Amino acid sequence: MNSPSPWTPMDSLGEALHQLRMSGLFYTRSEFAAPWGLALPELPHMLMFHVINVGECWLELDGMAPQRLLPGDFALVPHGQGHRLTHTPGAECAPLFDLPREALSERYEVLRHGGDGAAAQMICGAVRFDHPAAQQLVGLLPRSIHIAAADSPHREWMPDMLRFMADEMRALRPGGETIVTRLADILVIQAIRAWIERDPAAQGGWLGALRDKQIGRAIALIHREPSRDWTLASLAEAVAMSRSAFAARFAAQVGMPAMQYLAQWRMNSALTELRERSVPVAALAERMGYQSEAAFSRAFKRHTGLSPGAARRRSA
């Protein structure tokens, strides 16, 4: 659960990206012909992405200018906001769930819609990241991220990867869904990394703190060993800072005191464990550094509003 990334020990941002592993994945291979328009519903806690293989389309989100997507482009809508895909801005849209779809597997379907005009083909997906580091990172993302093929520093290999992804979705060979999932992992992480590199909004706050040599290391230590009996003094000592300087810098960069961040991280990690594993609550309490199951349950309910048992039942 808290295993470090294979990258350098000081690469705290790399560790956060390392935790971006998808779950709740669902794909649609969409084949459109103008005139067409598709209204996608709100999907809370999900990230939706669109990869354009053939033709072009327009992505419309309320309150934002339409974005034109061309072959090889990748668009990410990180917060599950409802949006529209159209052959031209302002086109009439049919709700996604009102259209017939061909289910090819439990997580994969084909959608065909439109008239007899210009064709557009794309791969669309809805994914979720459950790891607390991933959730924290996703929460900082803008309403949409658009990676244009023409502007991508990886335009040499991106088209080949997109073609490979489209071929796997058409052929449905054994293991094809696993390959598509791994490729989608790469595309989503690359989109997030591109946003971090180019958007000034990504240079401060928690992301900025991850880049700080000492504060980033302290965050990485908390992430790796949430059950350790950390104190403000021991964290400061681990990153070679005085207690007062560490406390002030951590709070200024992260936006909360170090001990509050530790408690929050423990509860988020515990929530992920309850969702993904059948670990007993008493064992989880010990793993998170609590002396008793009752103390852990009280802290968990303060943080989440639910008892550990209720959180597990709701997830199921």
Rank of each mutant, 00 (worst) to 15 (best):
A134K: 02
W195G: 06
P200M: 05
M122R: 09
A251V: 05
S23W: 08
L210H: 01
R182F: 11
A295E: 07
G289I: 08
F97D: 14
P78Y: 03
R182C: 09
R298N: 11
M122G: 15
L207F: 03
L172Q: 13
I215N: 02
A299D: 03
L207G: 06
A316T: 11
M158F: 15
M256G: 07
E286Q: 13
A149Y: 07
P153E: 12
N268T: 08
R275E: 10
I219F: 09
D116R: 12
S152H: 05
R228N: 04
L85H: 04
L38P: 04
F300K: 01
A126S: 09
W157F: 14
D62H: 11
L111H: 01
L85M: 12
D229G: 11
Q203E: 09
P153A: 01
D151V: 07
G115R: 08
P41A: 01
A194H: 15
P4F: 06
H50K: 11
R107I: 10
V279W: 09
W195P: 00
G204Q: 14
D73M: 05
Q260S: 13
T304H: 10
R211Y: 02
L61W: 00
S12C: 14
T28K: 02
P78E: 03
A166D: 14
G37W: 00
A285D: 05
G117Q: 00
L235Q: 03
H50G: 05
A118S: 09
G24S: 06
I179P: 00
R249I: 00
V254C: 01
R302Y: 08
E31M: 11
R107E: 10
P200C: 03
F32T: 07
H87E: 10
T86P: 03
A310H: 07
R249V: 05
P308F: 04
H303G: 05
G115Y: 10
G114P: 06
G205H: 02
R249D: 07
M161T: 15
A236P: 00
W157V: 14
L284D: 06
R228F: 13
A238P: 00
A166G: 12
S242V: 04
G255M: 02
H45Y: 11
L43E: 08
D160W: 08
S30Y: 12
L274G: 07
T88K: 08
L40H: 12
H50L: 11
M161L: 15
M10V: 14
R266A: 04
L43T: 11
V239A: 04
D160G: 10
R68M: 05
W7F: 14
G55M: 01
A282K: 15
A149W: 10
G139N: 02
T231A: 00
V138R: 11
A201P: 02
R155K: 15
I215P: 07
F296M: 06
P200Y: 04
Q81C: 13
Q19H: 15
R312C: 05
S234R: 10
R68N: 05
A283W: 13
A65N: 06
G216T: 00
N268K: 15
T8Q: 13
E31P: 14
S23D: 12
R313I: 10
R298A: 14
S105N: 07
A126W: 00
A220Y: 10
D151S: 05
Q19F: 12
A120M: 15
W230P: 01
H131R: 01
H83W: 06
G139T: 02
R217V: 12
A134S: 03
V279G: 02
A184N: 15
W265T: 08
